[in-house]
């Protein structure tokens, strides 16, 4: 028995049907078709599936999709402003902060949540903000530097 779910995704209204008990990750990927959200563990321990729900970083793999009805969700697919990259995306590129790229969407969302509430973070703030996101390739240093770089650039925030 499928339940209708309607919410705002990256500023647009979307709707889909989901099985009872479906998690937000599956609904975003397979229901709505937003493949920018990735799944790493499906048990809430790696941070790969991080999305923002009303600006707060959440693990979509352990978030009940039904609880998201009517709420505002942001994913990596919505980071660009038209053709312009978000400062975080530019900074990740410049700092070569991705190798396999699989953790990158979740990492970007965790970093965005930080910069949206704290535009001038310390290195410790950045470490704390991405502390729930596992990266197996980069050793974290370029990611931390990228987030600090993005904070320093004087640009509008995309919400």
């Amino acid at each position: 028995m499928k339940t209708p779910i309607q919410f705002r995704l990256n500023g647009e209204d979307v709707a889909t049907f989901a099985d009872g008990g479906a998690n937000l990750l599956d609904v975003l990927r397979e229901g709505v078709g937003d493949l920018s959200v990735k799944g790493g563990c499906w048990q809430g321990t790696c941070g790969t599936c991080t999305v923002l729900i009303e600006g707060v970083p959440r693990l979509s793999c352990v978030t009940l999709a039904e609880t998201c009805t009517g709420r505002s969700i942001e994913t990596t697919a919505g980071l660009r402003h038209g053709a312009d990259l978000h400062p975080l995306q530019k900074a990740f590129m410049e700092r070569f902060a991705a190798q396999c790229g699989y953790c990158t969407p979740g990492m970007l969302m965790a970093a965005k949540a930080l910069l949206d509430r704290n535009p001038n973070p310390s290195r410790e703030d950045v470490v704390e903000a991405i502390g729930g996101n596992i990266c197996r390739c980069t050793g974290y240093e370029p990611i931390i530097n990228a987030v600090l770089d993005a904070a320093r650039t004087d640009s509008r925030r995309h919400t």
Partner: peptide, 17 residues
């Protein structure tokens, strides 16, 4: 059985190289 139990250093554990 999962990443809670399989330990790896996080961003706060790295050092200058």
């Amino acid at each position: 059985r999962d990443f809670n139990e399989y330990l790896m250093p996080g961003p706060g554990d790295i050092c200058p190289h």
